[in-house]
Design a binder for these strands. Structure first.
Lengths: 338, 338
DNA sequence: TTGTACGCGTTATCAT
DNA sequence: ATGATAACGCGTACAA
């Protein structure tokens, strides 16, 4: 069914190698035969079989992106950046969605090795730091994460600095009883630390009753956590969240409990997904350049590939504060002056 | 660098074929050598080279999904469905994002043929119906669309019926001067027709001044279109939109113009993306089962592959009405009784 | 039960 | 300037 070099050579009355030369326009060929072969190629609409080419060259011009959940709006934009740069460099990208399951991560890592991908981008991995470090040794890989695996190529989102900044911002507005809805995951005390440190530096002692950790990041889990928080600790005047999805959940919990935002309580998110600007009140949050992050991660992966996997590089990306309505600051409303 | 059958055979002191047999546990082998070979395989952590296997078999266990924009929240859920079913069947999926550019669609179609994918899913194509029909002949493909290409495997979202239903709903609520913000694309009068037909059946003549077509589907374009509409035809009491993104844009335009929704005007969307439930007021819209759609499309593609490309099948998926707050009906507010 | 030879479609080496 | 041949890693057909 598919047209091969053989077919073209036969029809053109030349050898396979001659056709091959035309395809890769290498070596000296008479212009006459070149043109002739080109005609036949078009007639038969021949396409080189990349599988055969890859088998020989050892390079598949294929990379893979492993993500936990494509429906989490954080990832499509990262993928967008990855894909754009990949196309520019002639790579195709396998999309691997793990549904938040670390076993599926390992499964895909295995499968992809067999598929001879040239490299792998691992985003938001649910593996432990030890596993990540191990994986980094076995595969050509670039990791986008908030953790700290060693001896690999990593781009880290500065979650600690981010939560430090946004918590400090709330303190500046006059808030004192600030809660945190975090993500219960091993080896990632990152954002929670930022929250804690900001409080400590202002002479406040973080109260464990004001911290709720959930094991799954979603609007629903944010809703549930906020609900419990608001019932068990009604004295709080602000909630910091692991990310925007949870913050939106918290926003809805407040709506359900008839608690006004920002008048009664301030809520902040993290990531600045487009949803953050669209909810009411719009969400004050830390902006993370996701498209750019995708580009950067692929560029890093290309360096890993070029270095034959022997590349150790740690980059950090700093988010920045985006002030909207959910803290009331932009309209002068807040516990200090409302 | 990578371990091959050869390497395993050598170290195990057997022939290549014996190792091959163990891998595919086919043929009769003595349990002793089987176990021995298995040990070596694990020691060397050998993985079969799928490229070589595919080259021989002519099947790559790889399919591709081509979409216009991964950041459009419609597509990630479709992909989610595709990916889940693909994994169950041992397929890997290439993600191809065309950035709304039909030329990139054709480019990818070309590249993927060379990559020897077993099949292609084409979502939201920007190609003309003629091109689509042509593409359907050349590739093993399943198309998810609102158009009507012929002689291929197609799943169609019933846009006409959808807009007919939602427009009828507005008419039931007492609206008479209903506008439409549509998508300017060749061969797709689909949703616009549904809107028109609903009006006609109720004895109303669609007014061209109440119809705005945009050439790019986004929140921004919906915003701009609604703005113009509200300035040029302030008499309208409701706006139907091509999809939720445009409806959200319209919602924001109203907010900016201090026009209350639903008190002053009703707005409806299409798709029921999760954003629809999160904006204020929440959006009345037509629900489209996107995850299921993804599953269905891959299942269809598997049939196309099984039929060696010679499959002509047309499926239609009907959306259903989801009533929320943007028409005021759920709270009894509307032009008829407000 | 196990091994040998060939072919998948391509590129590289070495002739001619 | 062009062509025969080997090799990439694997599975199939046939032999031993």
């Amino acid at each position: 069914m598919p047209v091969t070099l053989q077919d073209v050579a036969l029809k053109a009355g030349v050898s396979i190698k001659t056709v091959s030369r035309v395809i890769n326009n290498q070596g000296e060929i008479s212009e006459a035969t070149r043109q002739h072969v080109l005609v036949i190629i078009n007639e038969l609409s021949y396409r080189p079989n990349m599988l055969a080419r890859s088998l020989l060259s050892g390079k598949s011009s294929t990379i893979a992106v492993i993500i936990p959940q494509i429906t989490d709006p954080f990832f499509p934009e990262v993928i967008h950046g990855v894909e754009d740069v990949a196309r520019q460099h002639g790579y195709n990208v396998f999309l691997c969605n793990t549904n938040d399951d670390p076993r599926q991560e390992l499964y895909y890592l295995d499968v992809l090795a067999g598929k001879q991908v040239d490299g792998i981008i691992l985003c938001g991995s649910r593996l432990s730091v030890e596993q990540l470090t191990e994986v980094g040794k076995k595969h050509r890989i670039a990791i986008l994460t908030s953790r700290e695996p060693r001896a690999t190529a990593v781009i880290k989102i500065a979650g600690e600095a981010g939560l430090y900044e946004i918590t400090s911002y709330l303190l500046t507005l006059g808030h004192q009883r600030i809660a945190h809805i975090g993500w219960q995951i091993k080896d990632e005390p990152d954002r929670l630390s930022g929250y804690r440190n900001a409080l400590l530096e202002h002479g406040l002692v973080p109260d464990d009753r004001w911290i709720k950790l959930v094991d799954h990041v979603s609007i629903e889990s944010g809703y549930a956590a906020a609900q419990q928080l608001l019932e068990q600790a009604p004295e709080i005047t602000a909630i910091t969240c692991y990310n925007d999805l949870m913050a939106v959940g918290a926003l809805q919990a407040c709506k359900a409990l008839k608690i006004r935002v920002p008048e009664d309580i301030a809520i902040v998110g993290f990531d600045d997904i487009s949803l953050a600007a669209l909810v009411t009140p719009s969400l004050t949050t830390m902006h993370v350049p996701r498209y750019r992050l995708g580009q950067m991660t692929l560029e890093l992966l290309l360096r890993v590939i070029a270095a034959d996997g022997a590349l150790e590089e740690h980059l950090s990306v700093e988010p920045h504060l985006v002030i909207r309505d959910s803290c009331g600051a932009s309209t002068g409303i807040g516990p200090g002056n409302g």
